[in-house]
């Protein structure tokens, strides 16, 4: 990070090597779209490079990058919603998500089943308000602690706790049929 702060672009290589998969999973979990998730990862590293001089050396890099990624994902999601409102004014049902992500090299059966689970989860996550979804993604997919999440999203710890509770309550209602 110190090399990055001095403007050394070569320092991006090891940083990307270490974090790009994790950031991709965070963005994909939030956005449920591979192309948008890759754009989010790319922009996360661009912003990290631009903001490296302001990075506080006592803080850890991973939560800092997670914060940039999830905030970018929220912006991206808002833009998508606005675009859909103007381009597709009245969809009668939630937009279908294709399960285009790759999971190792699955068999056809496990691929179908994985995609089906992915669709159900995508539909359930889509019902969460933006902030609840961001909190849930950072906890469930990135395993961030509650204080880290509060810091990343600029919220109080109490709000993070109650929002995580609401998110889980909603998801268990939505996924009730999926468990049967």
């Amino acid at each position: 990070m110190q090399r990055l702060a001095r403007g050394d672009r070569e320092a991006l290589g090891p940083l990307m090597e270490r974090h790009h998969r994790r950031l991709f999973r965070i963005a994909l979990s939030y956005l449920r779209d591979v192309d948008e998730a890759m754009d989010a990862v790319q922009e996360t590293f661009v912003k990290a490079y631009q903001a490296a001089s302001r990075w506080d050396p006592v803080s850890e890099v991973a939560p800092w990058l997670s914060r940039i990624a999830v905030n970018h994902a929220i912006d991206c999601y808002r833009r998508r919603q606005r675009r859909r409102r103007t381009e597709e004014p009245m969809p009668d049902h939630p937009i279908d998500h294709d399960g285009r992500w790759r999971v190792g090299d699955p068999s056809p059966e496990s691929e179908v089943s994985g995609r089906e689970v992915g669709h159900r989860i995508a539909a359930a996550l889509q019902t969460l308000p933006e902030r609840q979804r961001a909190i849930f993604v950072l906890r469930h997919y990135d395993e961030r602690s509650l204080p880290e999440i509060a810091d990343a999203l600029g919220m109080s710890l109490g709000t993070v706790k109650s929002s995580l509770h609401r998110a889980i309550a909603r998801l268990r209602t939505r996924l009730g049929s999926a468990q049967a």
Binding site: R21, F24, L28, F45, Q179
Partner: peptide, 29 residues
């Protein structure tokens, strides 16, 4: 809640690989 979180733990996005190599990503960045 546990059952719902178990379903969520099977989300393929949790183990998804980025569709491009890190070198390609670096070039883009």
């Amino acid at each position: 809640s546990r059952r719902a979180l178990d379903v969520l733990a099977r989300d393929p996005a949790r183990t998804a690989d980025a569709p491009v190599s890190v070198e390609f990503l670096k070039t883009r960045v």
